[in-house]
Simulated scan of single mutants.
Amino acid sequence: MQYIILVVSLIIFAIWAPVKVTIITLFGTFVIAATVKTVAQSVAGTSFSYGESLRAIGYSFALMLLAIFTIFSFLLGSSANISGVGGLMVFVAFFASYVLGFSIGLGTNFGASSIIAFVSTVISSILFYIGKSLA
Rank of each mutant, 00 (worst) to 15 (best):
F110M: 14
L88H: 00
S47T: 14
L134H: 07
K132L: 14
Q41V: 06
S53L: 05
Y50W: 11
S53I: 02
W16E: 01
A112K: 04
L65W: 14
N81V: 08
S73R: 09
P18N: 15
V43I: 15
M1E: 08
V21A: 10
S103C: 07
S120P: 05
I126E: 07
T46S: 15
F95I: 04
T121G: 12
L65P: 05
T70L: 15
A40C: 12
S113F: 09
I130Q: 09
L106Y: 10
V19C: 04
A33I: 05
A56F: 10
T25W: 01
A135G: 14
A14L: 02
L75M: 11
A135P: 00
S42V: 13
S120G: 09
S42D: 12
F110N: 13
S47K: 15
I23G: 02
F110A: 13
Y3Q: 12
I115M: 11
F48Q: 08
V31L: 15
T108H: 08
I116E: 06
A33Q: 08
A67P: 05
L63T: 00
G111F: 11
A33E: 08
F13R: 01
N109A: 13
A33M: 08
A44E: 14
A93C: 02
A40E: 07
V39C: 10
Q2I: 14
S125L: 15
I115S: 10
A62Q: 04
A62Y: 10
I71R: 09
G131R: 09
F72W: 12
G28A: 11
A14Q: 01
L10H: 01
T108N: 08
V19H: 03
S97Q: 02
N81G: 00
I104D: 04
L26I: 14
A34S: 13
L88A: 08
F30I: 15
G107W: 14
V90T: 03
A33P: 02
N109V: 09
R55C: 04
G84D: 05
I130P: 01
G111S: 13
V99I: 13
I57D: 03
Q41F: 09
R55K: 11
A117N: 01
G77S: 10
S124E: 09
F48D: 06
L75V: 02
T25M: 02
F128M: 14
I82K: 00
I5N: 04
V8S: 04
I23C: 07
V92A: 14
V85R: 04
I15R: 04
I130F: 13
L134Q: 06
N81P: 01
T35L: 09
G107E: 12
A56G: 15
T70Y: 14
G51T: 09
F91S: 04
G101M: 06
F91V: 07
I123Y: 08
S125I: 13
L127T: 10
G131H: 04
I15C: 05
G111H: 11
T35C: 13
G77Y: 15
A67C: 03
F110G: 11
A117L: 02
Y98D: 05
F72C: 03
G107Q: 12
S73C: 06
I4V: 14
F69M: 11
L54A: 11
T108Q: 07
T29E: 12
V36I: 14
T25G: 02
M89P: 00
I4W: 11
N81R: 05
N109K: 13
W16S: 02
V43H: 06
I104W: 06
V90L: 10
